[in-house]
Design a protein around this nucleic acid. Structure first.
Length: 840
RNA sequence: GCGGACGUGGCGGAAUGGCAGACGCUGCGGUCUUAAACACCGCUGGGGCAACCCGUGCGGGUUCGAAUCCCGCCGUCCGCACCA
């Protein structure tokens, strides 16, 4: 509070004067001044050049939700520090910015406030852009991308058409997730545990609808394998691996007594001798056909119940729920034993995975075991572990560990790992099995029955059927006048002028596709667009994209661990196969920031008013102080509760640095280098260079700031001493300013000017620590007796162990402590400590 | 249920086998001031006059030496959860 008053008073006082430099640090003057200068000079314009190595630093673009909160700064200002650091390290840096501007919140807000989604969105973008500018980031705004503009989304349509041509986009019926609140279908990835809509939290259910899909499953294997080649947090990779869910096994054919063939997928074909029954998913197409008359009523009741549960709680099932199911009355023949085995239906078998049917091996699979026990079905042991003898009558759980095959014909005695391929090969010869790999990953459902998105560029003609819109007719523009209140129908259906068109093939009347694309399509390639944002021929120039990409460092929240990052990887591979880029992995290095919580530790919420706005803080403390404060809260990948008090400490650091530099910048240097004091100062300077450099490189911003503060604290008392008139001092303060440049760009630029150095500090070369100065001649050695610190002595580092030992043992305090006990052992760690071990 | 990460002063955190608590915040004392605020200087894990003792969720282990490594437990957070 008080500093707000002070700051305002100072600002008012200075305004009247011309440009007499104030000795008091005032961000309200410094920050707008340099921001204007940088913009005029296009200091942050990224140029396509080949002289320096490129560095593409990308931060996930924001959704234009309204106003910024400090979380936005945390996500953007901290990567900005790193981007600046890389620039000073000699890289040609691309640090772009855009807005993920299509999507449901715009529509919902528009309905609530009775304005157009475009108005809402562009107003927000204008506001947020201004807020982002305050941050002092090195954003190249000339490359800004806004996804809801036809200049951008026409290329979504272009890519869609390329994919359609290659069979990677297709339309298919199927049971899909439907959100009753948002009145649209959702991708599997957007459905959270408990069947909750990722966007609005409503409970979702399945509906049978015809929808557009992208064939991401074609890339399942590559998406899985290439995770090994990127530098990403291990947990993100694990999440993607789990999501893709690769299983190796075989597809087996079982003959039914009805003459039908039932295929199953299994990862354990070696246990087929133990398959004592089969289970179909309730939705399996064979269910109605094979059910016997006697069982029909029970089966239909169960299927109906399962369907209802689908709408309420199915899939939210946990594995501990008791198994349920019904016998169909039908039998299959076990292909290896020729036994008749009963066919059941149960909801623990999912239609969406494998073939929607399983062979049940209760002795080896816990789920099958529980089912067999519940319905009194036979259990046959086919894998015998060493040491114990499994008895079906007394087993309490399935056994799926190592062992030898038993009751398995000619394969008896085969160890499990060998049995799997052997049995597959044997069954394959007889045409009864094929090795197969299954993935949990499903194709990406991209159509949405909402308005504020990219129109899908196809038309439907009565005579020609579905016809793609010719590339030359793009973009298919989203009409501004549509009625977009959600009805469950695509809003575009009611827009006659949009809907009615002519068939590009026959010229007859045709109807446009009225679904729009999932907004994750927009974000699946936006970083390529930054490399040639104004290209009118293609989504982007392949040469420029390949020159800048892949992205060297991608920063963003962990919440995109699966959705966005998986889709983006998929698109990159598709664009590579189309021939637009030369690589398949978009993001070499990924770093996730933690989440900034409200002061009381809960999630920041707009509605509860717990969001912290940066504007106010910038006004009171300056953007530089806020940047430092965010870095200093803790490890960046950890996040944590916002703390409004600590920022004053950062302000003090800046103010003190400002005082140090401005009060000594004009000092005449009147001593030749060489005194011990100067040598010590130079050591401190170079140790700080070393610490700041390694901390920045390792993304340890909190300790980097601590190193800067310690440096300031170290030189603060010297500013009015004679040493402030030496070359070592000059080196120290110039270094301080350069080291501050990435973190506090405004004040660093101001101080650089005060030092009389040529504009701009941000184009200076990053300093290198002089190894000769880092070397210590003397070190403080900790003297321990039995591991307890008893004394600290400063000794030359090159002293031999014997000398140190003699010296230490001769010390009065040590002799006192030892008494008449003789050292049993002495451990010496050069330059660190000496531990004298004595018997007790 | 399975898997992973984490647990350190009043608070955020530092230290990843070698001085626990760097640095910042808070708090306390002092200087300045008529006074207060600001600013500056100093102190700030607990106990003890001191030597010293205790202390990194709890219990055990390895080691000359453990916040750090190993085993078990407790707690918090995250991911997965009928995927055949």
């Amino acid at each position: 509070m008080s500093s707000a008053v002070r700051s305002t008073v100072t600002a008012g006082a200075v305004e009247g004067r011309s440009d007499a430099p104030s000795d008091r640090y005032d961000p309200a003057i410094i920050e707008p001044k340099w921001r204007a200068r940088w913009e005029t000079d296009e200091l942050y314009r990224a140029r396509d050049e080949a002289d320096r190595p490129k560095w593409y630093s990308l931060t996930m673009y924001p959704y234009p939700s309204g106003t910024l909160h400090v979380g936005h700064w945390y996500a953007f200002a901290v990567p900005d520090v790193f981007a600046r650091f890389q620039r000073m390290n000699g890289y040609n840096v691309l640090f772009p910015m855009g807005f993920d501007a299509f999507g449901l919140p715009a529509e919902n807000a528009a309905i609530r406030h009775n304005i157009h989604p475009a108005t809402w969105t562009f107003d927000n973008i204008d506001r947020m852009r201004a807020q982002y500018r305050q941050m002092g980031a090195m954003i190249d705004w000339s490359r800004e991308v806004v996804t809801c503009t036809p200049e951008y989304y026409r290329w979504n349509q272009w890519i869609f058409l390329q994919m359609l041509e290659r069979g990677l986009a297709y339309r298919a019926p199927g049971a899909v997730w439907w959100c009753p609140e948002d009145q649209t279908v959702l991708a599997n990835e957007q459905v959270l545990e408990g069947n909750i809509c990722e966007r609005c939290g409503a409970e979702v259910f399945k509906r049978d609808l015809e929808q557009w899909y992208f064939r991401i499953t074609d890339y399942a294997d590559e998406l899985l394998r290439e995770l090994d080649n990127v530098d990403w947090p291990e947990r993100v990779k694990t999440m993607q691996r789990n999501w893709i869910g690769r299983s190796e096994g075989a597809r087996l054919r079982f003959s039914l007594e009805t003459g039908d063939v039932l295929e199953v997928f299994t990862t354990r074909p070696d246990t087929v001798w133990g398959a004592t029954f089969m289970v179909l998913a309730p939705e399996h197409p064979l269910v109605a056909k094979i059910t016997t008359d006697g069982q029909r009523a029970a089966v239909e009741a169960y299927v109906e119940q399962a369907r209802r549960e689908t709408e309420i709680e199915r899939m939210s099932t946990d594995a501990t729920r008791p198994k349920s199911g019904v016998f169909t009355g039908a039998y299959a023949l076990n292909p290896v034993t020729d036994e008749r085995i009963p066919i059941w239906i149960a909801d623990y078998v999912l239609m969406g995975y494998g073939t929607g049917a399983i062979m049940a091996v209760p002795s080896g699979d816990q789920r099958d075991f529980e089912f067999a026990r519940a319905f009194d079905l036979p259990i046959r042991v086919v894998v015998q572990p060493e040491g114990v003898t499994l008895d079906p009558a007394t087993m309490e759980e399935a056994y799926d560990g190592a062992g030898l095959l038993v009751n398995s014909g000619s394969f008896d005695g085969t160890p499990v790992p060998d049995g799997v391929p052997a049995v597959i090969a044997w069954l394959d010869e007889q045409g009864r099995a094929k090795a197969e790999v299954n993935y949990r990953l499903r194709d990406w459902l991209i159509s949405r029955q909402r308005y504020w998105g990219t129109p899908i560029p196809v038309v439907y003609c009565d005579s020609c059927g579905m016809v793609p819109v010719p590339i030359d007719d793009l973009p298919v523009e989203l009409p501004m006048g549509a009625e977009f209140t959600p009805t469950g129908q695509s809003p575009l259906t009611t827009h006659e002028a949009f809907l009615r068109t002519v068939c590009p093939q026959c010229g007859g009347p045709a109807r446009r596709e009225t679904d729009t694309m999932d907004t994750f399509v927009d974000s699946s390639w936006y970083w390529f667009r930054y490399t040639s944002p104004h290209d009118e021929e293609r989504p982007f120039e392949p040469e420029k994209a390949s020159a800048w990409c892949p992205v060297d460092l991608y920063c963003g929240g962990i919440e995109h661990a699966i959705l966005h990052l998986l889709y983006a990887r998929f698109f990159t591979k598709v664009l590579r196969d189309i021939g637009l880029v030369d690589h398949g992995e978009p993001f070499q290095r990924l770093r996730n920031q933690g989440m900034i919580l409200a002061e009381e530790g809960t999630k920041m919420s707009k509605s509860r008013g717990t969001q912290i706005a940066p504007d106010d803080l910038v006004q009171r403390h300056g953007a530089d102080a806020l940047r430092l404060h965010l870095m200093y809260l803790g490890p960046w990948d950890q996040g944590g509760p916002w703390n409004s008090r600590g920022i004053t400490g950062m302000e003090k650091f800046i103010r003190d640095s400002y005082t140090i530099v401005t009060s000594t910048a004009r000092n005449r240097i009147d001593s030749e280098a060489g005194s011990d004091e100067e040598q010590a100062l130079r050591r401190l300077t170079h140790q700080t260079i070393e610490r700041v450099t390694t901390d920045l490189r390792d993304f340890q911003f909190n300790t980097m700031v601590a190193a800067l503060i310690e440096f300031k604290n170290g030189i603060w008392p010297l500013r009015e001493k004679p040493i402030a008139r030496t070359a070592a001092w000059r080196e120290a303060i110039e270094t301080l300013v350069v080291l501050m440049a990435p973190s506090t760009p405004y004040v660093a630029e101001e101080l650089w000017e005060r030092l009389g150095k040529p504009y701009s500090v941000h184009t200076q070369e990053w300093p290198a620590a002089d190894p000769a100065l880092l070397r210590q001649d003397e070190a403080e050695i900790v003297v321990q007796i039995n591991g307890k610190v008893r004394e600290k002595i400063t000794l030359p580092v090159d002293l031999s162990e014997a000398d140190v030992r003699e010296l230490v043992l001769g010390r009065e305090r040590v002799r006192e402590q030892l008494g008449d006990r003789a050292p049993a052992r002495v451990i010496y760690v050069p330059g660190r400590l000496i531990n004298i071990v004595v018997g007790r």
